[in-house]
Amino acid sequence: MSDTFSARLRAASWQDHQAAESQRYVSALVAGELPRQRYADLVAQHYFIYQVLEEAADAMRDDPLAGGFVDDRLTRLPALEADLAYLLGPDWAGRIAPNLATRRYVARMQEVCFTFAPAFIAHHYTRYLGDLSGGLFIGRQVAQTYELTEEGGVAFYHFAGIDDPRGYKNAYRARLDALPLDVTAEAALVGEVAVAYRHNSAVLAELGQEQEPKPVAPESMESAA
Rank of each mutant, 00 (worst) to 15 (best):
S2F: 08
S2C: 12
R8L: 14
A12G: 09
W14G: 10
H17L: 11
Q18C: 12
Q18A: 14
A19Y: 05
A20L: 15
E21H: 10
Q23A: 13
R24E: 13
Y25E: 00
A28C: 05
R38F: 02
R38P: 00
R38Q: 12
Y39P: 07
Y39S: 00
L42S: 03
L42Y: 00
L42E: 01
V43I: 15
H46E: 03
V52F: 03
E55Y: 03
E55Q: 15
A56C: 10
A56V: 03
D58N: 11
A59E: 11
A59Y: 01
P64E: 08
L65C: 05
A66F: 03
G67T: 09
G67F: 02
G67N: 09
G68K: 08
G68A: 14
F69Q: 01
L74F: 13
R76N: 05
L77E: 04
A82N: 11
L84N: 00
A85Y: 01
G94F: 07
R95F: 05
A97M: 08
P98V: 09
P98G: 08
L100W: 05
L100K: 12
R103W: 02
E111Q: 12
E111I: 01
V112D: 06
C113M: 04
F120Y: 14
I121L: 07
R127T: 02
L129R: 07
G134S: 07
L136A: 08
I138L: 15
G139N: 10
G139Q: 07
V142Q: 00
L148R: 03
E150N: 13
E151H: 14
E151L: 12
A155W: 07
I162T: 10
I162C: 09
D163V: 06
P165T: 14
P165H: 11
R166C: 03
R166D: 12
Y168R: 10
Y172P: 11
A178V: 09
L179A: 09
D182V: 10
E186V: 12
E186I: 12
L189Q: 04
G191D: 03
E192D: 15
N200E: 06
A202H: 01
A202V: 04
V203S: 03
A205V: 01
L207K: 00
G208F: 03
E210Q: 15
V216E: 09
E219T: 04
E219R: 07
E219H: 07
S220H: 10
M221K: 13
